[in-house]
Amino acid sequence: MMRAMPAPKKALFLAAAAAVLFVGTFLLSNFLRGADRGLLCSFSPLFSRPFTGGADVRGELALALIHYATTSQVPQQLRAEIQLTFDVLRRRAPCNFLVFGLGRDSRMWSALNAGGTTLFLEEDKEWYELVLKGSPSLRAHHIKYRTRLDEADKLLKGYRAEAECRPGRADGVAGLRRNGGCPLALVGLPDEVYEKEWDVVMIDAPKGYFPSAPGRMAAIYSAVVMGRGRRGEGQTDVFLHDVDRKVEKAFALEFLCQKNRVGATGRLWHFQIPPQKVALAHYDVEPTTTL
């Protein structure tokens, strides 16, 4: 007669099983649907990594399945939130996917964009090293921010006074790479961040829940600058997590713009940022957003 499984082990088993079913559904669906449409991307070939297909993609998907099948950790976002991003990746992958933050869901994001370029940016050095130790195949960089969460209100109210922060002066690579005069611009990042054209951007970092944390102000601003400077076809899909927090919400409404929001679920908002040739009228009025 088989003995009953101890409660702690049973809980671990159930968590692992749930992870397999949860992530496996997304990964397999992505691969099968993508194969039917040829896995074409909408961005300029100049900025894309050619799709190699075949064993490389199947191998990446298989490794992700094995990872989630053998761990009790599950992705940090809710299923409905993941589905929102997944629907866009299913349409655009393989593409250039920039993710602010490393986490328990990083393998999943990389696998959902199998054959494309998925790059993670992480500010916590210890966490960066820990994640890469367990997932050395992830493409990631450790970066530093110049902002603090307790400066968010000052940054939001004062950015219009900084000429280097204004649209036209701050669009695309030139608006970020060496734009030290704009405190919201992400300068000093690895070259590939500036040299690639990002089709999808996920902002789920850096930390933004204590005063000395970097906050996501610069990530939000810089995602808009990159989107406005887009040279390829189409728009830039930007996802922002934790919009229940006042700083994320305020900066989203000021920079990503309510009229660009095309989807939302849980704590995740989805925006489509048009290139600079499409006017963003909300920059022509005085800011009304306050923290």
Rank of each mutant, 00 (worst) to 15 (best):
L102I: 13
I82S: 07
D244L: 03
Q73I: 05
L186S: 13
L156C: 09
G53R: 07
R37V: 08
K133S: 15
G158E: 14
S44R: 12
I66A: 09
V74K: 09
L176H: 04
L98C: 05
L12H: 05
T25N: 12
G232E: 05
E197F: 01
S110P: 01
S72I: 10
R146L: 12
R148E: 07
G101S: 14
F86P: 04
E60S: 15
L121A: 06
A218G: 00
W269T: 06
Y209R: 15
L138I: 04
M202Q: 14
M2A: 15
D105Y: 08
A111Q: 07
L256G: 04
K9L: 06
G158S: 04
S44W: 03
A11S: 02
L63F: 09
L138W: 01
E123T: 00
G208T: 02
R139H: 12
L61F: 08
P274F: 07
E254Q: 13
V238A: 04
H141Q: 09
R245Q: 03
G38L: 01
G116E: 04
Q272H: 08
P206L: 10
G181H: 11
L253G: 11
T288W: 08
R79Q: 14
Q77M: 13
I220S: 11
L61H: 02
P211E: 12
F251K: 09
A114N: 10
K125I: 03
D124M: 11
F22P: 08
P183R: 00
A111D: 13
T25L: 15
G215S: 12
P6N: 10
E248P: 05
R90G: 01
R178E: 14
P75D: 03
L240P: 02
R267V: 10
L78V: 00
S222M: 08
E248A: 07
G175Q: 15
N179P: 01
E122I: 09
L256R: 01
M202C: 02
G103Q: 04
R148M: 09
K246A: 14
P94A: 03
T70Q: 01
H141E: 13
K196Q: 00
A64G: 10
T85M: 15
R79T: 06
A213T: 02
Q235Y: 00
A252S: 14
Y209F: 15
L155G: 00
D191H: 13
T71A: 06
Y128A: 10
D237I: 11
A114Y: 04
D36I: 11
A17V: 07
A250E: 10
N179Q: 11
V187A: 13
L130E: 14
E248C: 01
S222Q: 02
R3Q: 02
R91L: 06
P206N: 09
R146C: 00
G180F: 06
E286A: 10
E195D: 01
Y159W: 15
R230D: 08
G172K: 03
H270K: 05
G53E: 04
S137V: 07
Q272I: 10
R58C: 15
